[in-house]
Design a protein around this nucleic acid. Sequence first.
DNA 1: TACCAGGGCCTTT
DNA 2: AAAGGCCATGGT
Length: 283
Amino acid sequence: MENGMKIGLDLPPEDFDLDAVFGCGQCFRWERREDGSYAGVAFSKELVVRREGGRIVLDNVSADDFEGIWRRYFDLDRDYRVLRRRLSADPVLRAAIDFAPGIRILRQDPWETLCSFILSQNNNIPRIRGIVARLCACFGERLPGGGYAFPPPEKLAGCGPDAFAPLRAGFRAPYLLDAARKVASGAVDLGALDGMDLAAARASLMTIRGVGPKVADCVLLFGCGRLESFPIDVWMKRVLGACYACGFPKALWPYGGVAQQYLFYCARLCPERLGAAGIRPAV
DNA sequence: TACCAGGGCCTTT
DNA sequence: AAAGGCCATGGT
């Protein structure tokens, strides 16, 4: 089934760091392989991404899929150098960006993002990944390469709560079901979020049980490309407390979500870089 | 407002 | 090997 082509993107590590993009906690379905490449599924398409010198290579991709899916998914039309320059005006952000400049904000499927972050609450990343993987294996369509698509809301909406038992999602299972029902019925229209102002989009998402401000903001940031959406979780509270006693700079507000992601990643892996060694014992 | 809700990863003994 | 802390939170 080698009907696609190899696509090479002229993106050095500072513009696209595979480990940072896939490891910074914005997505849960990409797996690192022995050779440093990543295999994953998005929008029902399987893909392997790898670095080849100064280039990012997508293997076996059709021109249609590249233009229709991956260009947007990887946010390829945005110049992150401009973004980094702008955010670097702040010294704390400069340090975070120095640590991992090659983070990009993925534009994922809003439904998958919604489910993923419902499952993320009071949970750790390895286990979130496990639950999402079981969700796809149990309810998702089998794909040619052996992977699974993310199951659509209609597929989950008809389930009884016990159908989710194999996921071992705990208290989050009923939240997932409520999300599926509200989205499948049209009570929440994910496709309409793009045309709404941030507050209205947030309010719409928060009508779903188990979706509060933080989860809603994650959906808007990682699933709708709303870079001004600024999710505040326990880690961000720590960073804000330790580094921004006087408040987060207003001037950076339009890209608050990107800033948040640089800070989140750095805070977890290397808090001392932020001058906030205390927020976690050094690894 | 404080506390509680699966379950398991991970670190410490 | 066993124990306990901790988790990209939100509902009550």
